[in-house]
Design a protein around this nucleic acid. Structure first.
Lengths: 188, 188
DNA sequence: CCTACCGATCGGTAGG
DNA sequence: CCTACCGATCGGTAGG
């Protein structure tokens, strides 16, 4: 019981510190202090420092990938709209973990690094496919699909830097506005 | 002579390693090895490890800010187009330094951290102002100017992750395509 | 520009 | 779950 709670607290603390200070600049002692346990106790919950990072990165990667399986209906514009809004929803549901996912994955070592990059690549390809089809059909502007996909994902992935859970915009609003801006553009 | 060359080599090495491994995970010994000098020699060129990071971050910040002074002519759509293309040009001209600017600024300590954030804020306000005027005039979609500005900047700032100097897209093409996608949107 | 070194801190473990 | 500790590496410096 208490063990489970402490383990979850450690996970939360790790997400916050890895986001704020970065993985390399966060020591196991920092984590222990913030979670209010002894240094050696951490190793009852995790195997190593990188083990914690892996947990965060692959959890978020799984979340991203699972949403795409439900995304096969409607027009290509609707599919892209759904993909954007779902991506935003996952990020906002795990805002600290998402920040770590985006910024700290480079500290993964092999073979996890390759596995991680492969998952990210697979996810990116969902966006590329939708856009490629849309360009071919003439629904979207003539544009390199990979370029457009990466640009849209970059715009979405910036959220963790400014989104405040108790701020002026709700999670739903953020998704709607991003979809609107990226699909329809800024000019009228 | 030789000193100047080695100093420049050290700067280049620092940009590359800070980008690839991150500031905290790069040791002064890493820099010395890569620049092919002794560890202690580094301190003839810089005062400290953070001194190197400051040099990179503030150089890029200056570059970004200086382009906005020339941007007061034309319609608001033209001004935004110019701002986007100039931002992309600065990034691509300093692609490694830009990556460090975007990802590693959090390792700056006070008072440099506050100064850096203030410069970034000033720059962001240029984009916000253009968009706010455009929304008021009815040239742009009705949208929160700050939200739109941050989203556009996030999309632009993702470049360092994928842009290859010898790749398929020229710097000019990247700027034109980004301006097109973000201002006009993906759908026709 | 380098050799040799400093105190501090790191990730992790033995043993209980 | 903690005390006490390990070897390795860190940023930086003395002295030349």
């Amino acid at each position: 019981m208490k063990t489970v709670i402490k383990k979850e607290e450690l996970a939360t603390v790790a997400q916050n510190l890895f986001k704020d200070k970065g993985f390399a600049a966060t020591s196991m002692r920092d984590l222990a202090n913030e979670a209010d346990i002894g240094l050696a106790t951490i190793y009852n919950y995790v195997k190593s420092k990188e083990d914690i990072l892996q947990g965060i990165c692959f959890k978020v990667a799984d979340d991203f990938l699972s949403i795409m399986e439900d995304n096969k209906k409607g027009s290509l514009q609707q599919q892209l709209d759904f993909a954007i809004k779902s991506h935003v929803a996952v990020m906002i549901d795990n805002i600290e973990a998402s920040a770590v996912f985006m910024q700290e994955w480079k500290h993964l070592t092999e073979p996890y690094l390759s596995e991680f990059l492969a998952m990210r690549d697979t996810y990116e390809k969902y966006f590329i496919k939708i856009i490629r089809k849309g360009v071919k059909e003439g629904a979207f502007q003539k544009m390199k699909p990979k370029f457009a996909a990466i640009t849209i994902l970059s715009a979405l992935n910036g959220i963790y830097d400014w989104y405040k859970p108790n701020g002026k915009m709700s999670a739903k609003e953020v998704g709607e506005n991003l979809s609107d801006l990226l699909i329809k553009g800024l000019i009228i």
